[in-house]
Design a protein around this nucleic acid. Structure first.
Length: 563
RNA sequence: GUGCCUGUAGCUCAGCAGGAUAGAGCAACGGCCUUCUAAGCCGUGGGUCAGGGGUUCGAAUCCCUUCAGGCACGCCA
């Protein structure tokens, strides 16, 4: 049993089931199939620690008023040997349960026992899951979209790991196909412009206009001179791409590494061109999903359940991005045996979601095994104004610029504060503000404060006793109870984050923990006269420290011991 | 035009396998430091859950519709 909550839920569930069947035996209730018992935490304290709406759910089938059913259940309910001390019906038919504090004390014991493993759950049972994220084109620097996708993807992966999944973090390198072609053309044009003058060489309309392309060719010329003028265009592009691509890739790797992201696999799109794309097309053909028209190879949209047909192999014989992507996902599922694949995409790719799911079905893989987390793009604010360009370089703000400005902790924290689907306004001023306005500092401060208390007590020669010797039940103040209750929630917060693929709820959770701690800190002194109480509070703050540290670890930010 | 996403307090956002009086932070206002870090705490005010229908004992949550904003509809990725 990982979570005290599981234990409580199962106690309540059992009590209700037994009560219902007792009532049925006595003829008080008709023998109907019991709906799934939902147990929730009421918002209002007066409504108990836990409540269930089972009486209301049974009402229709049982042909009795909810309140009446609730009363019948309460007549029969037996909660000896549980945490429950009182149960009562309320409102339209809720049954509210009031617990004694033992479960909170047990939560502290559990935290003390599991330490840095506290919060881990095993809903994944080792299932092999891949999280593919960022996968930025290696044709330029990382931008804000990549920054958000990176923070989200890394945290989703982290949360899944803590939930018992075997997780692989993967970056898909788009080092083939059209965009590399365009990259080459762009580099070539800039190269020739450097040598023959900007006005004498046209720059292609659909090329990459970024300054970084010019930087690359300048660097190249500095190092190798103008010898590419005399070779063929094909050769020129090839050499320039081979020069610039690894540099870009290194930039991406370094940037992400600085951001705290380490991948297990860097997968090259080009590796699919050795046959896997052809194999994939062949399978689609055998399964009857291919049509040929206008000199190209198409995925049959009607058969696949899509609005229109999609080109897979162009007239010129080159596969499209989609063809490569289908082959890539076939590789993930069939060649490497992932049973679930999670991709993080910017919202501008949402049109691709159904296409890919349909394509998976077409090659015989259930579409729901591919999960796409779409995230909305980011707007940066500074001084209340939208910020588009870096003041320093005059270019679009890159991940590196962001990290220079606000640091890794603030960036990762902010990107994980809101759900992926929400538009995100990133306030650059707030992120570097050292005040209670800034939630990153608020949480880190709570951790540092605890460490300071522990440090001070250690200096004064106070050491914590073994857990068995601590009278935890001295913790009875409202602020102590609220804090313990919050700490007890971690395992199920982790599980819920994993199930919904929304790590942002953990970020909000840890803000709550910090808040409950600060309230406790103001209401209760750890260093107090009563030796036993001191020991109990020492355990409580140390447990709080562990919880904050564990969550910050998942989000991937520091838990400073001093501030 | 078609499809997808979003719309909740002044601002930024939670809540949305239907449940009790819709929450938090910030901003505003008023308090709290001779005691473990005031980067903190306590309190007050603030809402037509975009509008309108419908389903239900019960709707911010589900369905329909209108409006507003964003995005996608390429032999781009």
């Amino acid at each position: 049993m990982n979570s005290i909550f599981e234990k409580i839920r199962s106690q309540i569930e059992t009590a209700i089931k037994n009560a219902v069947s007792a009532a049925v035996t006595k003829g008080k209730l008709p023998d109907i199939e019991l709906p799934a018992i939902m147990i929730e935490k009421p918002r209002e304290e007066a409504h108990g620690d836990f409540s269930t709406n089972i009486a209301m759910q049974m009402a229709r089938q049982a042909r009795k008023a909810p309140v009446q059913i609730a009363h019948i259940i309460l007549e029969e309910i037996d909660y000896r040997d549980t945490y429950i001390v009182r149960a009562e019906s309320a409102g339209p038919g809720f049954i509210n349960f009031f617990l004694n504090n033992d479960w909170l004390y047990e939560a502290l014991i559990l935290i003390d026992k599991k330490k840095e493993q506290y919060g881990e759950v095993d809903i994944g049972r080792g299932e092999k899951v891949m999280v593919e994220f960022v996968s930025a084109n290696p044709t330029g620097p990382l931008h804000m979209g990549n920054a958000r996708g990176g923070a989200l993807g890394d945290c989703i992966a982290g949360v899944l790991q803590k939930s018992g999944y075997t997780v692989t973090r993967e970056f898909y390198i788009n080092d083939a196909g059209n965009q590399i072609e365009k990259f080459g053309i762009s580099l070539e044009a800039r190269y020739l412009q450097q040598i023959h003058g900007e006005n004498n060489i046209p720059f292609p309309e659909d090329g990459y206009h970024g300054e970084d392309i010019i930087d690359h060719v300048k660097d190249y010329i500095k190092q190798y001179g103008e010898k590419l003028v005399s070779v063929s265009s094909d050769e020129r592009r090839k050499v320039l791409v081979e020069y610039a691509l690894p540099k870009n890739l290194k930039c991406i790797k370094d940037g992400l590494s600085r951001y705290g992201i380490e991948y297990d696999v860097w997968f090259r799109e080009s590796s699919l061109y050795d046959g896997e794309i052809d194999e994939t097309i062949e399978i689609l053909k055998q399964r009857g999903y291919i049509i040929e028209k206008d000199g190209a190879v198409w995925l049959n949209g009607e058969k696949a359940g899509l609005e229109k047909d999609e080109v897979l192999i162009r007239q010129n014989g080159y596969p499209t991005y989609m063809a490569a992507d289908i082959a890539y996902h076939r590789n993930k599922f069939l060649k490497r045996g992932f049973s679930r694949v999670i991709n993080l995409w910017g919202a501008d790719h949402h049109g691709h979601v159904n296409r890919m799911k349909a394509a998976m079905e077409a090659i015989g893989i259930p579409g729901e095994k591919l999960q796409i987390v779409l995230f909305q793009l980011v707007r940066l604010y500074r001084g209340g104004e939208i910020e588009r360009m870096s003041k320093r370089t005059g270019r679009a703000i890159s991940l590196d610029d962001l990290l220079d400005d606000v640091g890794v902790d603030a960036a990762r924290f902010f990107f994980n504060m809101k759900t992926a689907g929400s538009h995100l306004d990133f306030d650059l001023d707030l992120a570097i503000e050292q005040s209670n306005n800034n939630p990153v500092f608020y949480v880190q401060y709570a951790h540092a404060r605890i460490c300071s208390i522990l440090r001070k007590l250690t200096e004064e020669g106070v050491t914590r006793k073994a857990i068995e010797d601590i009278k935890i039940n001295l913790l009875t103040q409202p602020e102590e109870l609220a804090l313990m209750k919050k700490l007890a929630e971690l395992p199920e917060e982790v599980a819920a984050s994993a199930e919904t693929l929304e790590p942002s709820r953990l970020t909000r959770y840890v803000i709550d923990v910090a808040s409950d701690f600060h309230s406790f800190y103001n209401a209760c002194r750890v260093k107090c006269e009563d030796e036993d109480l001191l020991q109990a509070r020492l355990l409580l703050v140390d447990s709080t420290r562990i919880v904050i540290k564990n969550v910050l670890g998942i989000i991937g930010i520091n838990a400073p011991e001093k501030m």
